[in-house]
Design a protein around this nucleic acid. Structure first.
Lengths: 127, 127
DNA sequence: CGTCACTATCTTGTGGCGCAAGATAGTGGC
DNA sequence: GCCACTATCTTGCGCCACAAGATAGTGACG
């Protein structure tokens, strides 16, 4: 049985989805560095912001991976607004180190890519 | 004689490899926008630059995909330095449009990510 | 009590794509 | 013929964002 493509993603959406790779984990680490957070928090905040950035299917597996890698440490706490108990994450030492290392890689990479992408900004239809 | 330095990928390399997704095609489009290019050109230039950025296994399939998508148009030309004939690519109208669209998505995305990543540059060991 | 709505986490399957490694050719020097 | 260099194309693997759905805990309402 075939899947019915419910809503084919736009080209921009698909690109953004690819761009998230390699930096989404750093974003979560940075936000957790501010204060402990739980998964649903990210989804709610991002959904309300109008930035339909990331869904549960991206966040939870990523958090699990980071936990497995020892970058974050989980602890349980009851929900303050009624509901299932939350799983908060705080940053580990390794997580903080990875965040700083990743930030450097990210900034070096974007600088390089920007240099290539802005070399021919004129893009006129007049050759 | 082949390259013996078979260094297994570091964490930074793996991150960079993920970061390329979503922007590598734009880089190629931007470089082709300057002047027509062929695949081997990218690899040679990048290898000599010390930036071991991308290999054949990334470039050629990507070029084929972009051709299939109508973003670039190929034409054959004999090698000027002895060797197999080259397959040059020039930008199509759709390619130029996609390049501009992609640049906008890229800059919007990186601005957003940068804002998140630079929010907590300092380290706070206070929970 | 049952049902519903909301909060919250976890799991499964799919698809895209960077990449290593190897196959295939064309050219020219020995 | 053989080899080295230039150049392209192909195969298989692994990572990961994402959609969709399963699982639970809580409280309100009738």
């Amino acid at each position: 049985m075939h899947r019915m493509t419910k809503e084919l993603p736009t080209a921009g959406d698909q690109r953004r989805s690819q761009l998230l790779r390699g930096v989404l984990d750093l974003c979560l680490l940075a936000l957790i560095a501010e204060r402990p957070r739980y998964g649903y928090e990210f989804i709610e905040a991002l959904t309300e912001s109008g930035l339909e950035l990331v869904g549960e299917g991206s966040i939870y597996p990523l958090l699990a991976r980071m936990e497995r890698a020892g970058l974050v440490e989980p602890f349980r706490a009851p929900s303050s607004s009624g509901g299932a108990p939350r799983k908060y994450y705080r940053l580990s030492e390794a997580g903080r180190a990875e965040l700083e290392r990743g930030r450097a890689v990210w900034q070096g990479f974007t600088a390089q890519a920007d240099r290539i992408l802005t070399r021919t900004i004129h893009g006129g239809t007049t050759p």
